[in-house]
Design a protein around this nucleic acid. Sequence first.
DNA 1: CTAGGATTTGGACTCTGTCTAACTTCCGGA
DNA 2: TCCGGAAGTTAGACAGAGTCCAAATCCTAG
Lengths: 137, 137
Amino acid sequence: MLHYSHDNMAELLRAHDINPTHQRIEIAYALFSRQEHLSADQVMAIVNDRHAETSKATVYNTLNLFLEKGLIREVIVDPSKVFYDPNTGPHHHLYEVDSGRLTDIDAFDVRIEGLPALPKGVETVGIDLIVRVKRTA
Amino acid sequence: MLHYSHDNMAELLRAHDINPTHQRIEIAYALFSRQEHLSADQVMAIVNDRHAETSKATVYNTLNLFLEKGLIREVIVDPSKVFYDPNTGPHHHLYEVDSGRLTDIDAFDVRIEGLPALPKGVETVGIDLIVRVKRTA
DNA sequence: CTAGGATTTGGACTCTGTCTAACTTCCGGA
DNA sequence: TCCGGAAGTTAGACAGAGTCCAAATCCTAG
């Protein structure tokens, strides 16, 4: 998908078994049109930029719904807030601790196979590799 | 250090340039004697087990001080609370999403060298690899 | 013993996120 | 077209982690 319109957001939602309402389309558009990692309050701010349209509860409901349906991914790097990542493919993250900027590490080639066998009765949900960096003084 | 006493906690703190007060020794002892990952409120509960001695503010102050001085490490896996890890050596984590249990992955052999070069003007603070698992149904 | 810096304290406060009960929207059937 | 119910949205109260601040306490050097 090369260009993001409200219309193909509706399609995207339907494809993920989500009823495409106004609010959901706006939130999906906010996340996918800019390919960034946004926190709930950033999504809130973007969606309500001109005139308030979407409540806090809906933003949280919707982000959690998208998460369940596998449309977005949660990135936990900052103790004070969760980021949401519209890129669900295999990749990892670079986190700038002083500015709070979170970016992707593409072209990713880390050998995860080195990992010891997992305990019995357990299956992997996801593997997060986070490289924390700071500006050199 | 094979055995953890309050006395060698005091030494440990001094070695890290921390003035060893009662409260700080108790908190260090809580973390190091059991080699576990504890959250601030767990530390609080342990330290105040018999009779209340240490305030919430002090627990947070102290954990942040230990962090600054490199005595412990912060593990961010759960959006609702931070865990503190007395093991600062190179190792990574296994997080059970349903129970909230956090354990170490020792014998660690993942090839981090595969990483692309970092952006200029930036240095690595730490690399966190977190394997999220859940119980198989 | 005393003064002053370091440390600790309770409590108010902030912030992210959840919950709830009421309200609105949408849609299918008569 | 009208009705009813299910799905979705809302404001605001609430919960829990963590911070802040001014006052009280604890060293320790002199």
